[in-house]
Amino acid sequence: MTAELSITLRNDLSEIPRVTEAVEGFGEAHAVGEKVIFAMTLALDEVLTNVITYAFPKDDPGPRAIHVDVSLTNGVVRAMVRDDGRAFDPLTEVPPPDLDASIDDRAIGGLGVHFLRTLMDGCSYSRRGDRNELEFFKNL
């Protein structure tokens, strides 16, 4: 049994709540636990925020379309985010935060990708043609 959800959004931060609400509804409808729903929602929020904020040139912001596909198959929730912005692999290009730094030295930022790595059971990036594809999954 596979359940699927597909959403297309504009590159505008105000679009993100629509996506996270849809994913929460999808999870509840298919008896996905609250913990997994929250982790998935947060990971998607962070990924989409990065794409919307950094992927498109400031002098030619669009609107551009970003595609989100979420599926539930054999106890695994999987998400795929596709955009046609500049090539960017957050998994290798964003350094991990220094979690032990003091308040003064602690950098502001870099936590979004850290959440993705920490909360998901796996994630992968690929560049296909003119598209970024970021896939991540969590086991129920």
Binding site: F38, T41, L42, D45, E46, T49, I103, D104, R106, I108, G109, L111, G112, F115
Partner: peptide, 19 residues
């Protein structure tokens, strides 16, 4: 009910100012 890194960023900025 929910916080993302955008919210944590504000908390960290506030902590730095308070210090």
């Amino acid at each position: 009910d929910y916080i993302s890194s955008a919210g944590l960023r504000v908390l960290l900025m506030a902590a730095k100012r308070m210090r």
